[in-house]
Amino acid sequence: MMRFMFAFFCGYFISVSGSLSQLVTNNSLASPSTLGMDGAAVLFILVSQIILVVFNIDFSLNHLSLILFAGTSLVLFPFVFYKSKVKNIWHQLNMQKVILFGLAFNLMIGALFSVIQFLFMALNFEFPVGLWFGSFKQYDQNFIFIFIIVFMVTQLVLYRLSPKIEVLNLGSSIAQGMGFDVEFIQKFGLYISFILTGIVISYFGVFSFLGLIFPHILRSFRFFKRNMKFEILLGPYFCGAILGVVDQLCYNVTVHGAELPVGMVSSVIGAFVLILLVFKLNLSRT
């Protein structure tokens, strides 16, 4: 039951991250994976592991990673929301280039992960290999309270943000014309997406492309297809349940006693879905 709860919360957070990433960028290929958020969160895990080993500290990797991640996020907060009067770079961002950069960044972190893994293993140090493909196999029920608090705060934030998000779905131009501070909503949405991604990855590892797949799964259902508010407020519950069920399947269906990590399944399916989406978008333009 506890394992299912963790999977549900992670699915909820990933779904919110994915939907927010796509909505604020108005790009159906945007997600925590394609925007480099996964890579950034893994970087904190790598740094945490290096700190623990180099300084020989007996501390939970998950907690240290989350502390570093949260600390950096708080430090970055004023810079993210700072509005330059001289040259506003935000307005000039090309989302397709940002997505390419995000994908490249993730690849770079993946390579760095492999190099550090090699060095650690060569030097006989412990290395969290399993974190590259997320799994709920190792969970600590004491962490559930953090997830419950984040879940409740997220719901509150989404409830307040959802009317603006609904208008933003029609385009930043229309939202701006109606007097909304579009830049703030976009930055805030991406910031929440980043925080939720970091929490999931710090504790359970990477679930690549789930943030990309979940919004598209939701939009294939009539109930969510024409109502962005439903996608944002109710859809994540559905996605949380999906991840919980898929995780239970992975737990019960083992390969010679070895459990397939859910993150591995999402990586394979997600990469395939990304290719299909790019193909579909390309066809719709021609």
């Binding site: 796509q22 029609l170 385009g171 131009s173 969510f224 962005m228």
Partner: peptide
């Protein structure tokens, strides 16, 4: 700018 919602909004 063209109105292009992400979902099937009419």
């Amino acid at each position: 700018s063209r109105v292009m919602p992400l979902n099937d909004l009419s």
